[in-house]
Design a protein around this nucleic acid. Structure first.
Length: 418
RNA sequence: GUGGCUGUAGUUCAGUUGGUAGAGCACAGGAUUGUGGUUCCUGGCGUCGUGGGUUCGAGCCCCAUCAGCCACCCCA
């Protein structure tokens, strides 16, 4: 199957046999978001590269090596969006969405791009769904965002996932904690793996979720973030937990959750499916109280999450949540003979005007071939047009499941079909 | 960016110690002239991912390259 052109590495086609699954997931997501009164926002697929570089953090891998950057004809530097939050916040600021009363509750879906080595659950063009609530620092909103995500995943029918939360504090707390970690790990520097020695300077928190045994062992007794929270941070966190309990959401606190992007503050959370393999986060998010201001707006708090459709799809297939092809024509038209073929469009048109889905294959002429097709497509009805019936103004309606058939007049045909 | 494994008909794969390729499924047609998931019969020349090399000769050996998978990394 070598064709002249192949799709770019790390991308994939969504083929006809699978597209209904995507449609379904997107549909459930949008409905869930609307249930929580979130409104859709659509932003461009590319933005000023600077937007991502500044917001995600200069040291993040996303910015350093995973961005699809390019220059346009006037030399402006753009990037294919690697994530969805920064563009939404940019739009929030640019369109003064904060001017209207209340919290801006937004959701989005669409492709994101990251130049990374492809593997299970990780692609260069991947599809995300996400929500953002901008304009409130109330811990109730933190819980509601998590509840929205939880409801969504539940509606899809998934059961094999876990919710983990943490608080990464505010900037002050963060800085103090990083310092404590550096003090703790520095004596062990020589024993840490190569990567962690670098992390020690730049992002000491990342040492905590290193998979190397030695690093894990050393990290066991490291200072815990939650102990460093100040009064404001820990009371915020406590309230989030209380609200989550009221929402009836099972969760566990994992003090080692470290988010990849620099802008997170306070609540951070992840939804994990451990059966997915290495890329096991089906979605994650957190609060970003400094981001709006950093992007040029007023000092407005926000929180959101994003998740990958691919990983949801994998999870759903693991749990056997998709069955059969959902797109089936209600009626399959069988036309026998030239006279019937000449009138087939007329009959089809009548049915479609009644919103009945119809399939007909003009290249199949034998009765047998057409019946086989009707069967294969799982249609409920076959409408058989033959010369003698047509002369009587009648058509044969066959109930494929019951294997019974009756003659009905053309004018009454659609009323016999559910 | 690093490592391991893999790359043969639409698909899943077989292909023996190197001698120029097969099967199941799917698909198409048919089994007395107008009726469908079963059964039976018939139908496969496909650049053996690509490009080099070794050899009298390579799908099977070597090198390169591309792609896929899994892991590292990172994260959705």
């Amino acid at each position: 199957m070598s064709s002249k052109y192949n799709l770019p590495r790390g991308t994939y086609d969504i083929l006809p046999d699978d597209s209904y699954k995507w449609e379904y997931i997107i549909d459930v997501f949008k409905n869930t978001a609307k249930l929580f009164n979130y409104k859709e926002i659509v932003t461009p697929i590319f933005e000023d590269a600077d937007l991502f570089e500044r917001s995600s953090g200069e040291t993040s891998d996303i910015v350093q090596k995973e961005m699809y950057k390019f220059n346009d004809k006037k030399g402006r530097t753009f990037a294919l969006r690697p994530e969805g939050t920064a563009p939404v916040v940019r739009s929030y600021v640019e369109n003064s969405l904060g001017a209207s009363a209340g919290i801006q509750k937004l959701f989005y879906t669409g492709p994101m791009f990251r130049y990374d080595r492809p593997q299970k659950g990780r692609y260069r063009q991947f599809y995300q769904y996400g929500v953002e609530a901008i304009g409130s620092n109330n811990p109730y909103i933190d819980a509601e965002i998590i509840a929205l995500f939880y409801t969504f995943v539940q509606k899809l029918g998934l059961t094999q996932f876990e919710v983990e939360i943490n608080s990464v504090g505010n900037e002050l707390v963060s800085a103090r904690y990083d310092k404590a970690l550096q003090e703790y790990f520095t004596p062990f520097k020589e024993e840490l793996c190569h990567d962690c020695q670098i992390r020690l300077d730049k992002k000491p928190r990342r040492i905590l979720d290193c998979k190397v045994k030695a690093c894990k062992e050393i990290g066991k007794d490291a200072p815990v973030m939650l102990d460093y929270l100040d009064e404001e941070c820990s009371s915020h966190f406590e309230k989030v937990k209380q609200y989550l309990q009221q929402f009836g959401i099972p969760f566990s606190v994992n003090p080692k959750i470290v988010r990849g992007l620099d802008y997170y503050t306070h609540t951070a959370f992840e939804f994990l499916n451990h059966k997915l393999g290495a890329q096991n986060a089906i979605g994650a998010g957190g609060r970003y109280n400094g981001l709006v201001e950093q992007i040029g707006g007023k000092s407005v708090p926000g929180i959101g999450f994003a998740g990958g459709f691919e990983r949801l799809l994998l999870s759903m297939e693991l749990e056997g949540l998709f069955s059969g092809n959902k797109v089936i024509p209600q009626v399959y038209i069988v036309a026998i003979g030239e006279k019937a073929q000449n009138r087939v469009a007329e009959i089809i048109s009548i049915l479609r005007q009644e919103n009945i889905s119809v399939e007909y294959d003009p290249d199949k002429t034998s009765l047998k071939a057409q019946m086989k097709m009707a069967d294969k497509l799982n249609s409920n009805y076959a409408v058989i047009l033959g010369d003698d019936e047509l002369e009587r103004g009648v058509v044969t309606l066959k109930y494929l499941l019951e294997r019974k058939q009756v003659d009905v007049s053309i004018s009454e045909l659609s009323s016999h079909i559910k």
